Simulated assay, not measured.
Amino acid sequence: MPISPDLSNVGWLYQEHHGWVRAWLNKKLGNSSDAAELAHDVFVRLLSKPKAFDSEGHARAYLSAMSRHVCVDFWRRQRVERAWLEVLSSRPEHCMPSEEHRAMVLEALQQVQAMLERLPPKVAEAFLLAQLQGLSYQAIGERLGVSARTVTHYMAKAMFQCLLLEAELDEALS
């Protein structure tokens, strides 16, 4: 029995649009299994934040945007995972972490990457310059063309996001 064309009904939207969402993702990713998984993620996201649409065109546009977002998230996760595996490959066998530890570190790295990408670009750059290169706020300010006081504000924003992420990770582990 077909589901009624209710633009707020995720089941109907899934039935009508899942095929083209999966095909679009497959074209972008070149991998049908990843495309199928991400197509399901699009509709899971829609289930977690239900939305009513004015028209089928509006629903399709929204699903297109969500498909692009899951694709970008997928590529971002892959990039972080490749970097982590590269670091691991340079370590001696006896120093390798357990699979569980590797998965936990990868998840944390992906969340840190996502947090950095949510920050305004100059805030993220200031944070990385301080944390990875150990530059002073004055040196960061000179590099970014802002005052040391502005760098202090940037760092406060970044550290606040780090605290939120830490609380989120602590909650997930407990």
Rank of each mutant, 00 (worst) to 15 (best):
P5G: 09
V44M: 10
Q133T: 09
L13I: 08
G145Y: 12
N9Q: 09
A156F: 03
S90L: 14
M155F: 05
S136V: 10
T152A: 10
Y62H: 14
L25N: 12
M1Q: 07
I3G: 04
V21A: 03
A148I: 02
R60Q: 11
E125H: 09
L129K: 02
A114I: 00
M115D: 01
M104H: 12
E107S: 08
S98Q: 03
Q111V: 02
P97A: 06
H58T: 03
S90M: 14
R102S: 07
L135M: 15
L129Y: 06
L109P: 05
R143P: 13
L46N: 01
A36D: 13
R68C: 06
N9I: 02
R68M: 11
V146K: 12
Q15C: 02
H18T: 00
Y62Q: 05
M96D: 01
G145M: 10
E86F: 10
K122A: 11
A126H: 08
Q161Y: 10
H58C: 03
E107Y: 02
Q78I: 08
C95R: 13
P5C: 01
A156P: 04
F127R: 05
K51Q: 14
D54T: 04
R91T: 11
H94S: 13
I3R: 09
V123N: 07
M96S: 06
S174K: 15
A61P: 00
G141A: 11
A36N: 06
C71R: 10
V80Y: 10
S98I: 03
